[in-house]
């Protein structure tokens, strides 16, 4: 795939090839300094001894990972059992992020398809409308959603006034509200990559499929979806990964009643626990999970390219 342009184009490719290293250098430096180094610090911290009220003592230990996987009771002196607390918190985050991804896909795919099939000049307007909410900070948007969905907020008020419901629908401070927040926050991340894929899709293929007596369903599943699959997978990753670490929606819409991975980690650094090694370990475990997803994606991409 990578060789497509470079190979066989002769002199010009060779002329520009030498420029590659200096051009990529700033990106490498930024990634190296601001991404790789912090992750390494985090990795090291996760194996250090916790200092009371935040901070670390430079003595290596597995205590943070032990705390994650083993339950030793309220006073820490019972024989170790499997610790379900953090597994539960991680499972809650994965479930919420997965559901948000599925919902975003169900709404995002038709939306992207709709936009990509408009005349080119009106597509710009539709895309513009998709990105408008992004001019406002995520925190403000999440608080706005809280205003909208609260028990005596406008949405419930309209439904009551219209006589559609007799009692306010209680959504605020529930898992549903968290889901709503995640779905709303990350929907454009699904629409945009799918749109980019659909826009490149050769609609003659659909016509050809129809000419060969393929039903609409078969055309969709056998022709269209395989063609735009890279866009779908990219969209899913862009929704799933940030949802997994989200803490604004759980805090503001879910009432901070149940930890998600993000808020659990935040608590280790900002809260009374002040357990930096454990926060780092939880973050490393999260990072490992995300990496597994990305490797899975990369491999499926490579297979697709072959």
């Amino acid at each position: 795939m990578a060789g497509g342009l470079g190979q066989g184009t002769g002199k010009s490719a060779r002329t520009y090839a030498g420029l590659g290293v200096p051009l990529i250098l700033p990106a490498w430096l930024i990634i190296g300094i601001f991404l790789v180094v912090p992750i390494l610090i985090m990795l090291v911290y996760s194996f250090l001894t916790k200092e009371f009220r935040g901070g670390v003592i430079w003595e290596p230990t597995l205590a943070a990972y032990d705390q994650f996987f083993f339950d030793r009771g309220l006073f820490g002196d019972e024989p170790p059992k499997i610790e379900w607390t953090y597994i539960l918190i991680f499972w809650r985050s994965i479930w919420q992020a997965g559901l948000a991804t599925v919902l975003c896909l169900l709404i995002g795919f038709p939306t992207a398809w709709f936009i990509a099939t408009r005349p080119p000049n009106s597509r710009t307007i539709w895309l513009f409308l998709i990105t408008v909410p992004y001019w406002v900070n995520l925190l403000i948007r999440t608080i706005s959603m809280k205003f909208l969905i609260r028990d005596n907020g406008p949405l419930n008020q309209w439904l009551l006034d219209a006589g559609l419901i007799s009692e306010p629908i209680h959504v605020i401070n529930t898992a549903t509200a968290v889901q709503l927040g995640l779905f709303y926050s990350y929907l454009p991340f699904m629409v945009l990559p799918i749109y980019a894929a659909v826009e490149r899709y050769n609609f003659a293929l659909s016509e050809a499929a129809a000419d060969l007596y393929a039903s609409r369903w078969v055309t969709l599943t056998q022709v269209i979806i395989p063609s735009v699959k890279p866009g779908i997978i990219a969209g899913c990753i862009l929704v799933f990964v940030p949802s997994l670490g989200a803490f604004l929606a759980p805090d503001l819409l879910g009432g901070a009643k149940n930890f998600m991975i993000g808020s659990l980690i935040e608590e280790q650094f900002k809260g009374a626990a002040g357990n930096w090694p454990f926060g780092a370990a939880a973050a490393m475990i999260l990072l490992t999970m995300v990496l597994i997803v990305l490797i899975f994606y990369a491999r499926s991409q490579a297979r697709g390219a072959r």
Partner: peptide
Amino acid sequence: DEEVQKVYDTIWTNLKK
């Protein structure tokens, strides 16, 4: 102190799990 604070932390995490 650290010993008691650790129990408080466990109680708090259990509460919000």
